[in-house]
Nucleic acid binder design. Structure first.
Lengths: 150, 150
DNA sequence: TATTGTTATACTCTATAACTATA
DNA sequence: TATAGTTATAGAGTATAACAATA
């Protein structure tokens, strides 16, 4: 294996800084995603459960928009979660074309448990780096959230 | 949220920090990914070109390990990039089981251009935040790279 | 025999287009 | 006609298992 690879150069301008930061974000996201190997739930499924937990019931179209996928794609995700008994699909009262999607009690439990499991690896990693680096990441997290919401 | 029931483990700053940071990373990665809608190259293909540019020539197994995919999966990605003329595949001189994968001149040009296009949104966003926040993100990028390589 | 790359095959997730039912 | 959801189908991207070439 190629162990003596050269690390990327330090950023010297805004363009390089953007590039480094973008690559770091993608790499870490991928690494974090790889940690979910233990559970069978996909990122898309988990994101739907998490959205329902945080923001409450949604229609199909609302979920699709929030997760930035198409309605058929979201429909498929919702089908599998419904089959697993993690969410409920009920016709809306006011407009019977719409459906109301919400977590079941089991779904609520599963999303909490899954989030904890997925945090575990990162928590372990954070425990082993210096406190000042943890502080940097905590500050960065806030900035990143703001950037993502632009 | 759990208000009346106490969780099994004591509340930990590290756990909350891990959760916040993980969510921020995913959200930003997703936001950045949405920005690449214009070009046809997948994240996986682009990551291979970028790795070859930053770290130089690789064998197939080295690339697969670096990108954390299986050899057949990487082989497929490499095939499509070779067909597009963006990388070259040559038998290694010392061990003829191995192949050496490297960027072509066109591949080198494409990775630079694609990176610039993909960086554009983030670069614009970074230009509008305070310098101390940019500095925080630059420090965070280094730490994140290290975490991802654990 | 072990290792490197490759092919065969299947599964998951995503998308577009077409269909239904309701408004 | 327009909208919400669904079904049909196809295209990426990934994986495991089996194979070929070389060491």
């Amino acid at each position: 294996m190629n162990d003596s690879t050269t690390p990327p150069e330090p950023p010297s301008d805004l363009g390089a800084a953007a590039s480094d930061f973008r690559m770091a974000t993608f790499r870490l996201a991928r690494r974090l995603r790889a940690q979910r190997a233990v559970d069978t739930m996909s990122d898309g499924q988990f994101a739907v459960l998490a959205a329902l937990k945080v923001f409450g019931p949604h229609t199909l179209a609302e979920l699709a928009t929030r997760e930035r996928v198409t309605a058929p794609s979201m429909n498929r995700t919702v089908n599998s979660l419904e089959e697993s008994g993690l969410l409920s699909r009920t016709p809306s009262l006011d407009d019977r074309r719409k459906i109301t999607l919400d977590l079941t009690d089991e779904g609520r439990a599963v999303v909490v448990e899954t989030a904890r499991r997925r945090d575990a690896w990162l928590e372990g990693a954070l425990a082993e780096i210096p406190a000042d680096e943890r502080a940097t990441l905590a500050r960065a997290a806030k900035i990143m959230q703001r950037l993502a919401d632009r």
